[in-house]
Design a protein around this nucleic acid. Structure first.
Lengths: 248, 248
DNA sequence: TTCCCGAATTCACATAGGTTAAATCGGGCG
DNA sequence: CGCCCGATTTAACCTATGTGAATTCGGGAA
């Protein structure tokens, strides 16, 4: 829309924008990447996008909506290991030809783009930068997982929630999905937040209210607003460096 | 020793064994991989193997010893994100041409092998299976991180410690490093265990003693012994599937 | 042998966060 | 308009784990 690159599929630009943000791609590589992506049918909230253990034949990219990656503990508790935002790849199993090691579920109505793994492999031969881009995305994803690990291992409830809100805010901003000043859509339940942060629903609620009182975050009607991002970042120890790719 | 493959460097077999365990490699590929590895000088306990943020020019493989990957929280607390055993790669940053996102420190006197990244890249052109093997290793590593995330998010102290001991036992076994029946070396301090599991030193101690009383684990003089592995696995919800590569 | 030091252990006490259950809110639907 | 149901909120109570500090243990150095 803002450029005249041929985008054969609506929504393909989300995928291109993501790849280009981590590796600078030639026009030809971009066109090749755009051509092999196709859109799937809309997926309602709570439906699976990928089932744990499934050997996927296509690379799935979230085009719009909101999803999460998760695993189950033997006890039955579900641990959300990552939130998937538009532009994110749903699973990186294909990089090592492994089946998905975790499930991916839509948290709000979503649209997913699919790139056939074999077709991707064949254009990668001509445009190896595309593989580099995917590997960079995988590395960032890995960093985010580790940052969550840091939260669970060493931050208290207030910091955990604050840190996650900072991260989502930053990523939504990067994706161009901020509503106006500082607000963004968070179509997630407080209980689901708890499943990511290792906190009970009740305590997530207490914590969110404390953030409200501190004037650091508002969350109403599935919309989060951060009146004072630097303040929240300071409280929670958020530093977005881990979400950026080193374009060195 | 048990085969007549030329191993140009002592210790190179640890590296080869690891690669071969995730992807079956041709004799030629094995020889090529062995040739480009060189051994570094011994590293004393508590020394850095990799410094956070450093752009490594070589792939580092732990040949012998024991190490950990870690990050610091702004508060100063250190979070260990993974234990590195002989045969493991110390850092996967080179896969995405990124600098190391975490530090790696020897926990006991260690020897590290180095493979120049550029030389590796050049032989990968001839033996792409080598890259596949490295990516598989990265995927397993990623799985282990997520399993730790599950521990911190949803397991209590007893299960966390038990699960970690099960994992180390399994990995030491795979590396052929079990002493006799079920015992293995764990040259780590209780406080360091706590840094990995998000527990205080005191509580790690309490927990280890409980495991002793339950007859599920003994840990004395840096040697861990598991009298009843299935029992401990059941208690802690350990399933080694996440450590295996799907050779499909 | 004795000293010394880091690691393991023990103890007393404090608290963040879990649990259970009930109350309220808000929107979709008949 | 009134009902229903999931999500949020509140409340009372409970416990797993943290904290701080002292004690013991075990092995290396003098």
């Amino acid at each position: 829309m803002n450029s005249n690159v041929a985008v054969s599929v609506p929504g393909g630009d989300v995928w291109l924008r993501r790849l280009s943000s981590v590796v600078s791609l030639s026009r030809a590589a971009q066109e090749a990447a755009a051509e092999i992506m196709s859109l799937g049918r809309p997926i309602p909230a709570r439906d699976h996008i990928i089932r744990d253990g499934n050997r996927e034949t296509s690379i799935k990219v979230l085009i719009s909506g909101f999803a999460c990656r998760y695993k189950f503990l033997p006890a039955g508790r579900r641990q959300i290991t990552a939130f998937v935002l538009p532009g994110d790849l749903c699973d990186f199993g294909f990089v090592s030809s492994s089946p998905a090691s975790q499930g991916v579920m839509a948290l709000s109505p979503s649209i997913v783009g699919a790139v056939d793994v074999d077709r991707f492999a064949s254009i990668v031969e001509e445009y190896p930068d595309l593989m580099a881009a995917v590997l960079r995305c995988a590395a960032i994803e890995q960093n985010a997982t580790q940052e969550l690990l840091l939260s669970l291992g060493g931050r208290n409830a207030l910091q955990r929630v604050g840190h996650l809100l900072c991260e989502l805010h930053f990523r939504m901003q990067s994706a161009g999905l901020l509503r106006d000043g500082q607000a963004f859509d968070l179509p997630v339940t407080q209980s689901e937040l708890g499943e990511a942060l290792g906190l009970s629903t009740v305590h997530v609620n207490r914590t969110v209210q404390t953030l409200r009182k501190l004037g650091l975050a508002t969350w109403r009607d599935r919309v989060v607003s951060l009146p004072n991002p630097p303040g929240l970042a300071a409280l929670s120890g958020f530093d977005p460096a881990y979400l950026k790719s080193e374009m060195a």
